Computed example of a mutant assay.
Amino acid sequence: MTSDDEWAAVQPTHRLSYRPFCDSHEATWRGLARARLHDQELVDQAVRSIRRELRRNWVCVLSQPDIEAHAWMIAKRCIADRELSSGQAPPRAVVADWIVAIRRAQVQARISLENLDNGYEELYAAILRLPERQYDMIVLRYMLDIDYRMIAVYLGITESNARTTTSQGLAKLRRFLGADTATGDMQ
């Protein structure tokens, strides 16, 4: 049996167990899957696939410098695989989870939906056009309401980089939608 002193000397990542790790991150993976997939069954399949891959490679996962970032990449790959195998692309119409995200992003990006022909649909289409990292930021920050500190952990970047990349994504959304959609100062 390991004494408390010996256990304290073990790196924290080696004390991390599979089930609590997955349980604590599943809501975020599920949110990402909902952002990309059409229906609940596909979301459930993707999350089961993420958990299976993590379990199968848990020792390797624990050896990664940024476990959460490594798990995020596995989650994205499993969701993309599910998307491809189902023959579906992200929904082109606004889905319920995106309404809140779009409202939050629109305020931060200083975008007025009144000036857009199709309102939410046009902004949603612009979000889908963002580069992968900026898209991730919009999903994490505005759809899943995750703070910048946790985003940095998930993506293996600094908090400052998470803020900057989000700002760049919001600026790109403004450009995609045209300068005439900008409103007052950022809140």
Rank of each mutant, 00 (worst) to 15 (best):
M1P: 03
M1N: 00
M1C: 09
S3P: 01
D4F: 08
D5K: 09
W7E: 05
A8Y: 03
A9P: 04
Q11W: 06
T13S: 03
H14G: 14
L16S: 02
S17G: 08
Y18P: 06
R19K: 03
R19H: 03
P20A: 15
F21D: 00
H25L: 07
H25Y: 00
H25T: 09
E26N: 10
A27C: 10
T28V: 12
W29F: 15
G31V: 06
A33F: 01
R34T: 04
A35M: 03
R36K: 11
L37K: 10
L37I: 00
D39R: 09
E41K: 03
V43W: 06
Q45S: 10
Q45H: 02
A46T: 05
A46Y: 15
V47D: 07
R48P: 09
I50G: 09
R51V: 07
R52S: 12
R52C: 06
R52V: 04
E53P: 02
E53A: 04
C60A: 02
L62C: 10
S63W: 01
Q64S: 14
D66G: 05
I67M: 14
E68M: 05
A69D: 03
K76D: 15
K76N: 04
C78E: 11
A80Y: 08
L84K: 13
L84M: 12
R92V: 08
V94R: 04
A96V: 13
A96R: 11
W98T: 06
I99K: 05
A101R: 06
A101I: 00
I102L: 15
R103M: 12
A105S: 11
A105C: 00
Q106I: 01
Q108L: 11
Q108P: 07
R110G: 13
L116T: 02
L116H: 14
D117M: 14
N118I: 01
E121R: 07
E121Q: 11
E122T: 11
A125D: 10
A126K: 06
A126M: 08
I127V: 15
R129C: 13
R129F: 10
L130P: 01
P131E: 13
P131S: 14
R133T: 02
Y135D: 07
L140D: 02
Y142R: 01
M143R: 14
M143T: 00
D147P: 03
Y148S: 13
Y148V: 13
R149W: 08
I151N: 03
A152Y: 05
Y154H: 13
G156R: 05
T158A: 11
E159A: 14
E159C: 12
N161V: 14
T164C: 07
T165L: 15
T165E: 04
T166A: 13
T166E: 05
S167E: 10
L170Q: 03
A171W: 04
L173S: 08
L173T: 00
R174F: 14
R174C: 01
R175Y: 05
L177D: 02
A179L: 11
A179P: 00
G184T: 15
D185S: 13
M186A: 14
